[in-house]
Amino acid sequence: MKILLPVDGSLYSTRAARYLAKHWPADASVTLLNVDAPLRESIAGHLDADSVARFHLDNGTATLRPARRLLVKAGHLFDERLLIGDPATEILRLAKRGRYDLVVMGSHGRGVLKSLFLGSVVVKVLAGSNVPVLVVR
């Protein structure tokens, strides 16, 4: 089963990774994904392409770290993707093109007020995904 796990480095996405590692059957092959926001033109314009690429690589690698540790420990085979752009758009595109069976996402909010909302990325993915979505909070 091909599972896509987008993470943003927050507590919530780490919780989703932990959940997946703990509960999901061993035959899962999980792809970790981080979508980094593009640098503003006013900043990127002063940097060469290599520096921009390295910046995003460093950012993405650091973001994936907590989830990666959990998944390696659980023995889920996995692959990593770092993309740049709008998170919801890139998640939807990869889920579709990569023929994933499931998208797993952590969602913000356990408090009284926060529990009234799902994360905005989760809502957008739910609204546009052809692939089943598992939301962990």
């Binding site: 909010g109 799902l118 692939v131 089943p132 598992l134």
Partner: peptide, 12 residues
């Protein structure tokens, strides 16, 4: 999803 602590799998 908004009300539950239990994870929800939205199937489609």
């Amino acid at each position: 999803m908004q009300a539950a602590v239990t994870p929800v799998l939205a199937w489609r």
